[in-house]
Amino acid sequence: MSVDVLAAGRTRRAVRRRGALATLVVLVVATFVVTLMVGQTFYPPGDVLRVIAGQTVPGASFTVGELRLPRAVLGVLAGVAFALGGVTFQTMLRNPLASPDIIGITHGASAAAVFAITVLAVSGAVISLVAVVAALATAMLIYVLSFKDGVVGTRLILIGIGIAAMLQSVVSYLLVRAATWDLPAAMRWITGSLNGATWSEVVTLSVAVAAFGALLLSHSRRLDLLQLGDDAASALGVRVERTRVTVIIAAVGLIAFATAATGPIAFVAFLSGPIAARLVGPTGSLLVPAALVGALLVLVADLAGQFAFGSRYPVGVVTGVLGAPYLVYLLIRTNRAGGSL
C-alpha cells in the first residue's frame, strides 16, 4: 500500500516536472520569436522564420538576421550561463543567497573587463579571456581566504561580500577615469546590457556554454548529493573536493564568459534557481529548469527594457528592479523560517 502511495507521489512529481519544463521551453521559444518580430519595424512570424532558415528577405534579412537575432541569441546564452552558474553555487553552498553576483565572482570578471577596456584598450576575445582568468582568480582567492579547517559556507559568503565591495570600488575608479565618450559603454559594466550584440560574441559565448554546461550537467547527480553534506556525500561515493573544484571551475567559467559578453546582468544568477525550484517542485536536478528560467528572464527583461518604458533601459536595469522585491521577499522568508542562515 505505502509503496503504491510513494510510487503515485513520484509519478505526480515527475508529471509536474515534465509539465513545468515543457511550459518553460514553449515560453522561451515564444519570447524568442516575439523578440525577433518586434522593433522599429514589425516583421510577421513567416518572415522571421524564413530569415532563420537562411532565405533572403528584403529588409528583414538585415534587421532580423544581423541586429535582432544576435541580440536574442546572446540573451538566451547569457541567461543560461548566469542561471547555471548561479544555481550551481546555490546548490553547492546550500544557500539561495550564495550566488556569484552577491559573493563577488561577477565583480571580478566585471572589474577585469573594465580594466581591459579602459586601460589596456583591447577588444573582442581578449576581454573574454581576461574576464575568465580574473573570475577564476577571484573565486580561488575567496576559496583560499575562507579556508580554515575546511570551508564553511557562511565564512565564504561573508568573505565574498568583502571582496565584492573592494572590486566594486575598483570598477568605480576605472569608470571615473574613463573618458566621457566611453561612459555609456562603461555603464554596461555596472548594469549589463545586450546592446550592440555581434555574432562573434555569440560564437564565443556559445562555445563556453556548450563546454562548461556539458561539464556541469555530467556532474549534476554528484552536485545534488553534495547537498546532503560532505560526509553523507563521500559515504555515497562522491569524491567531495574533486567534484567541488570541477563544479566551481565550470560555474565560474560560465559566469565569466557571460559577464564578458554582456556585463553583469543583475540578479539572473541569483533568481533563476529559486524560481525554477518553485516551478518544478522538489524533484530532480535544478540545472536544466534554472537554465530555461534564466533565458526567459533575460529575454523578457530585454523586451520590456526596450519597449515598455518611455526610454530604453538596458536589460540589467530591468532584471535589477524586478529582482529587488523578490530578493527582499526571499530574505524575509528565509529568515522567518530560520532555515539556511
Binding site: L97, D101, I102, I157, I161, A164, M187, I190, T191, A266, F267, G316, V317, T319, G320, V321, G323, A324, P325, L327, V328, L331, N335, L341
Partner: peptide, 15 residues
Amino acid sequence: LSGAATTAAFTSLIS
C-alpha cells in the same frame, strides 16, 4: 547578506 542584497537592489534602482 541583507545589506548586500539591499545594496544590489538599490544600485539597480539608481541605474
